[in-house]
Simulated assay, not measured.
Amino acid sequence: MKIALLSYSTKPRGGVVHTLALAEALAAAGEDVTVWSLGRGGDPGFFREVNPDVRVRIVPFPDGPEGETVGERILRSIATLREAFDPSPYDIVHAQDCISANAAGRCIRTVHHLDHFTTPELAACHERAIVEPFAHICVSRSVADELAAGWDLKAEVIPNGVAYERFAATDTAARTAWRTRLGRYVLTVGGIEPRKGSLDLLEAYALLRTGHPGVRLVIAGGETLFDYRAYRTRWETRASELGVEPVVLGPVPDDELPALVAAADAFAFPSLKEGFGLAAMEALAAGVPLIVRDLPVLHEVFEPAARFGATPETLAHELGQALTQNDPTRQTAGRELAARHTWDTAAQRHVDFYRSLN
């Protein structure tokens, strides 16, 4: 089959990581795969090298005019990708987000998670990208159930894979380098934004420090299409009020990320909305204690390997437990869970689903 996978960005977001890993696994299974994406800000390629068996088509997407709103950027993104993409050579057109689904026309859509937007253009993009595709995939049963309840749509459930060996077998010297630089730390990946529960994690960290004053909060990642400057300002103001100084690394080079994860004392994943939690699964592969938001989807994906907290107080308590209690049962369960989620399996299930549609 000739397969086109479409993404809205070249930056290291979870959906983009998913797209590239799926493309490479599909190509390894013998499929003819091309990944299409917008190259934001002059990006000529993705955040990491892509296996040469996968064709890559980057559509230039320069920065917009000063004062461009989020809504205007969304519409320009859709129009730019739509103008460049020709679906006719492909047997399968598979969009991974609402922007690429709006641009692709008739397509399969993976719904990674469902959001509620207030920006009119983004809300309309989100809705069209659910109702117009002719077939749907979700990365968890919980999201598929949301899709069924809200839109009466049936989705195939195909969980993410995880690059298990990449995170399970990290270089000792690289881990030591992060420990030397940061000391003991709780890590979160995904930047500072509302969906990631960043303010709640900040409050939890302030509570945690009363019993663990030497532990730092480290935040990696943060590339996004949206403008979260107002939320970031609120976060910084609250950090100052609480008297805490988290370490904000921003985007971390892809080859340095596994060691950063593996060197952490705990991994915090307090997202308010998720479809799977790929970064959290990578932490389990590395053997790092995992604390996640008490959400049905995260129980589905991470039980019994994670600890769960619903509020800053319970998140802080569970983080403290993870820092003080050696829990080999959970660690083993986490490694085994991550090892079961292979990209080869995910790719084969995608191929089976694609063929079932013909």
Results as ranks from 00 to 15, higher is better:
294 D>Q: 06
296 P>Q: 04
292 V>M: 00
111 V>W: 04
200 D>A: 13
115 D>C: 01
20 L>Q: 08
1 M>G: 07
6 L>H: 12
147 L>K: 01
29 A>K: 04
155 A>I: 12
340 R>Y: 06
354 Y>R: 03
264 A>T: 12
53 D>N: 06
291 I>D: 06
180 T>R: 10
326 N>Q: 14
117 F>L: 11
279 A>M: 13
17 V>P: 02
207 L>C: 10
59 V>M: 07
224 T>A: 12
188 T>A: 00
117 F>T: 06
60 P>V: 09
309 G>A: 02
335 R>K: 15
226 F>E: 10
312 P>N: 12
226 F>R: 10
340 R>L: 05
266 A>E: 06
32 D>P: 00
254 D>P: 09
43 D>K: 03
70 V>I: 11
201 L>S: 00
116 H>E: 11
95 A>H: 05
113 H>R: 08
161 G>E: 09
227 D>K: 03
200 D>F: 04
92 I>Q: 02
225 L>C: 01
276 F>A: 02
64 G>E: 04
254 D>V: 03
304 P>C: 11
226 F>L: 01
14 G>S: 08
230 A>I: 09
43 D>Y: 06
334 G>T: 11
164 Y>F: 15
66 E>F: 08
79 A>H: 07
337 L>H: 13
54 V>W: 05
89 P>D: 00
201 L>T: 02
98 C>N: 13
328 P>F: 05
36 W>M: 02
300 E>L: 08
280 A>I: 01
39 G>Q: 02
108 I>F: 10
36 W>I: 05
285 A>G: 09
261 V>M: 14
31 E>G: 01
79 A>W: 09
213 P>D: 01
119 T>V: 15
10 T>E: 04
192 I>T: 14
168 A>F: 05
321 Q>W: 09
62 P>W: 01
162 V>R: 03
322 A>T: 01
260 L>I: 05
178 W>L: 08
246 P>W: 03
196 K>R: 14
138 C>P: 06
93 V>M: 02
353 F>C: 00
132 E>D: 15
54 V>K: 03
34 T>R: 11
14 G>N: 04
222 G>Q: 14
335 R>Y: 10
7 S>E: 06
212 H>W: 08
106 R>A: 14
282 E>Q: 15
285 A>L: 09
315 L>H: 03
1 M>A: 10
259 A>T: 02
148 A>R: 09
347 A>E: 10
82 R>V: 10
222 G>M: 10
168 A>V: 12
169 A>K: 15
325 Q>H: 05
35 V>S: 09
356 S>F: 00
50 V>R: 12
126 H>Q: 14
29 A>P: 00
343 W>N: 08
17 V>T: 13
254 D>S: 13
255 D>P: 15
18 H>Y: 15
276 F>C: 07
168 A>T: 15
312 P>C: 14
94 H>R: 02
241 E>T: 08
87 P>T: 07
327 D>Q: 09
184 R>M: 03
265 D>E: 15
36 W>L: 00
331 Q>R: 14
